[in-house]
Design a protein around this nucleic acid. Sequence first.
DNA 1: CAAATATACATAATTTTCTTATGCATAAAA
DNA 2: TTTTATGCATAAGAAAATTATGTATATTTG
Lengths: 112, 112
Amino acid sequence: MSNSKLYKGSLTTIILKLLNESDKMYGYEITQKVKELTKGELKITEGALYPALHKLEADGLLDVEVKKVDNRLRKYYKITENGEKESSHQLSELASYIATMQALVNPKLSLE
Amino acid sequence: MSNSKLYKGSLTTIILKLLNESDKMYGYEITQKVKELTKGELKITEGALYPALHKLEADGLLDVEVKKVDNRLRKYYKITENGEKESSHQLSELASYIATMQALVNPKLSLE
DNA sequence: CAAATATACATAATTTTCTTATGCATAAAA
DNA sequence: TTTTATGCATAAGAAAATTATGTATATTTG
């Protein structure tokens, strides 16, 4: 996913957040959007992305719709209601993670 | 390590940071210090901690010294010069991770 | 025009990192 | 006296990624 192992565990948080903002996205589009938003810092590999999308779909957090565009296949993903709930849950977990890590790494700042 | 999978990958960052601040610490002491600093939010399990300490030692980032205190064994760990370098590297990776995630999750805020 | 790159999906083998479950041993508290 | 705390350790398994492939079409570049 990136050079830093810290990104481990944050892939579904990212996917759900992006899909919560745009109506629908397909896999390749997600990789490009992430690259763009992070100015190349974070590159999502296909080996991580596609299994993650399949799992989110199997868990009922995403719906899928296959379309043929320019003679190429695209699988559009759309977030479900449960997906929205899970997304906001994961976003608050992210905020909590960041606060906790700052308490550990910069205890003086985090007392304020 | 915690209820949230986001902590995956941050254990060595935490260990190195704590050992960079205090002269030396032993394993159990690290678990207690983390629990205290995070107000119980983060509990480091032994199954994660001890293998991590062994690996850091094998990689030359920590030195170890065994002592008997109150008839109980303690393995005190001290950070090496390479460990200090690696610690500052991992801390900047953490800062970078946080910035990147905020750019993804709250793109409006992170433009400022 | 041929080769490389971009678009678009997928999976399998392996690695990393953690959880859960044990195991041993001593000391203190309930 | 049994549980909890202190202190270490490892093994089996799960989760999530990397790396390496594979297939296929479209576009760009030399």
